[in-house]
């Protein structure tokens, strides 16, 4: 009886209330996080050691699936396609940085230009797939525009079929979709740089390029680094353009497209899980290395600043003492 009252008291106290609110507010998101992220993650690691389908018997095969990932022609080698996407993201980054810089200064109809270039980001992937199947079809949109520019139709390749060019065509759609979004991010970052800095630079007679190099670039360093990290992980897991446009045909199947095909069409769940785990590990290592790298670069830059200022102080002190000595 006595104990029960103390529990009741505790429940009415601040501590008890705190406990209730923490539990009540966290239980749903944590259950969801567990069910749709950590449980499948754990199961996936488990699956990767089995020869299995979604239904039916499963057989333990040890590391065989992992060995297959590295041996099969279609699995690990597909990762080299991500180099195309990395190259694309470099172009995308530079292009959006250039356009963002232009649009951050006074431009007539800037809002319109910004809107037009941003809109592709809001279109859903399937629609983009159809738009570009149409765009690249022989004699259709892209070919017509190139003919306006003086190219002859016979000299143009089949954009989605020719293995020399089709991966670039797909990377192009990805750049098309995201450069406006990157640009908007960069504009946001540039706008948050202190306005007085530009005014001071103007007064000092700095030209646009110098302003970009010495004010804008350092000011938006963080967001650029973030985008570089995102684009490298994004390139490794490139999926949408080949999935919706070519379905991975003619040598455009990236790692994830092949994984999807193995998991859901061939139903080799064990092998697909092993592929997923391998790529997750690669992505994690890449993210970690990049974080460390940028940390190191930034820290050493800061250290240099500190060292330089220390040196300056010492020199000043020496100068001061020498001068003092002289007057004495």
């Amino acid at each position: 009886m006595k104990k029960k009252r103390t529990i009741g008291e505790w429940a009415r106290s601040r501590d008890g209330q705190k406990f209730f609110v923490i539990t009540a507010f966290m239980i749903v998101p944590l259950v969801l996080l567990f069910t749709f992220t950590y449980l499948p993650f754990g199961e996936m690691v488990g699956y990767s050691f089995f020869n299995m389908k979604y239904v039916g018997a499963r057989k333990f095969v040890g590391w065989k699936n992992y060995i297959k990932v590295f041996q099969r022609d279609d699995c690990f080698k597909a990762l080299k396609l991500s180099l195309y996407y990395m190259a694309g993201s470099v172009v995308q980054l530079l292009l959006s940085l250039y356009l963002a810089t232009i649009l951050s200064f006074k431009v007539k109809m800037g809002g319109l230009f910004k809107g037009l270039m941003f809109f592709p980001f809001l279109i859903n992937g399937i629609a983009i797939g159809f738009i570009f199947k149409f765009f690249y079809t022989r004699g259709f949109v892209f070919d017509t525009v190139l003919q306006w520019c003086g190219f002859r139709l016979d000299s143009l390749p089949y954009w989605l079929r020719d293995q020399k060019i089709n991966n670039w065509s797909l990377v192009g759609t990805s750049v098309w979709r995201y450069f406006g979004q990157n640009m908007v991010l960069f504009i946001g970052a540039i706008m948050s740089v202190d306005n007085e800095l530009y005014e001071a630079a103007m007064l000092d007679g700095a030209n646009r390029f110098q302003q970009f190099l010495y004010i804008i670039l350092p000011g938006i360093k963080t967001i650029i680094v973030l985008n570089v990290i995102l684009s490298i992980t994004g390139s490794l897991s490139a999926f949408e353009p080949p999935y919706v446009i070519t379905d991975g045909a003619n040598g455009t199947g990236t790692y994830f497209v092949i994984m999807h095909e193995i998991a859901h069409t061939q139903q080799k769940v064990g092998l697909a899980s092993a592929m997923a785990v391998v790529l997750l590990i690669i992505i994690m290592i890449a993210t970690l290395l990049q974080k460390l790298f940028f940390k190191y670069v930034f820290r050493s830059a800061e250290d240099e600043d500190k060292r330089a200022s220390l040196k300056r102080e010492r020199r000043l002190a020496r100068y001061g003492s020498e001068k003092g000595g002289n007057t004495l």
Binding site: T37, M44, M259
Partner: peptide, 8 residues
């Protein structure tokens, strides 16, 4: 990455 997770 979401696509990889969907396998499980």
């Amino acid at each position: 990455p979401g696509v990889a997770m969907q396998v499980a």
